[in-house]
Computed example of a mutant assay.
Amino acid sequence: MSAVIKSLNCEDFQALRASADWMLLDCRNLTDYKAGHLDGALHAHDGLVESLVRKGDKQRTILVYCYSGHRSEHLTEFLTGFGFDNVFNLVGGYTRWLEVNAQPVE
């Protein structure tokens, strides 16, 4: 039986972001992460994920994202399977985040 994946769309996360202590995990490759990521996001490399599984706060709220939301869905499911209760996949990923937060052209 696979874990239930919780999802959160960009618009809702934008509204909730200031109201909670979120851990943001960017599971794109390191080059893409370095080129740009959500403020405060950590690169979800294998060592970080292993450390979270071993000794992370399983009650902490975590938002996972990639480019489109597919790869992050897998990491969300993985963490949920290890007992993390508040893990969310960002629907549409970083691409959608950029669309939602684009500044209007004047």
Rank of each mutant, 00 (worst) to 15 (best):
W22L: 03
L30Q: 13
G40F: 10
L38R: 04
T76C: 04
A20P: 00
T61A: 15
N101Q: 13
Y33K: 01
L42W: 12
L90C: 03
N101L: 13
S68H: 15
W97Y: 12
Y65I: 03
A3S: 15
L52K: 02
L30D: 10
E11K: 14
A35M: 09
S68E: 12
L48H: 07
K55T: 09
Y33D: 00
K55G: 15
R60D: 02
D21A: 13
M1E: 15
E106R: 08
D85N: 08
V4R: 10
H43E: 09
N29D: 15
N89T: 01
L79S: 01
K55N: 14
V49C: 10
G56N: 06
L90H: 03
A15R: 14
L30S: 11
V4S: 12
A35V: 02
G83I: 03
E50Y: 10
S68I: 07
L24Q: 06
T61S: 14
R28P: 01
Y33R: 02
G36P: 06
E77R: 14
H74V: 10
A35H: 09
H70V: 14
T80V: 10
D46M: 07
R96Q: 14
F82T: 02
W97C: 11
L98K: 14
E11D: 14
V87I: 08
G92A: 08
L63M: 12
I5G: 03
F78L: 07
G56I: 07
E99F: 02
G83Q: 07
A3P: 07
Q59H: 15
D46G: 11
R96P: 00
D57S: 08
T76H: 00
G36Q: 09
S68R: 12
A41W: 01
A41G: 04
F84I: 00
L63Q: 04
Q59D: 14
E99Y: 05
A20R: 13
L16P: 00
L30C: 09
V49G: 09
E11N: 12
R54Q: 13
S2D: 14
T31Y: 06
G93K: 01
L8T: 06
I5T: 13
R60V: 00
G83V: 03
S51I: 00
C27M: 09
P104F: 05
A20E: 15
H43P: 03
E77F: 04
E106N: 11
N101F: 03
M23G: 05
D12A: 13
D46L: 05
N101R: 13
V100H: 10
I5W: 04
M1Q: 14
G47N: 11
G83S: 04
T80L: 01
L98H: 06
V49K: 08
Q14C: 09
E106V: 13
Y65G: 01
F88E: 00
R60T: 04
E77H: 12
L75C: 08
F88N: 01
D39F: 05
C27D: 05
R17M: 12
Y33T: 00
M1W: 11
R60E: 07
F82W: 13
G69W: 02
H74T: 09
A44H: 01
N29F: 11
F78M: 05
A35D: 15
R28C: 02
S7P: 00
A102Y: 05
G47K: 12
A18V: 07
R54L: 13
S51V: 00
E11T: 13
A15P: 00
A41L: 05
D46R: 12
W22V: 02
N9C: 11
V53S: 05
W97N: 11
G69F: 04
V87G: 02
I62G: 00
L63K: 06
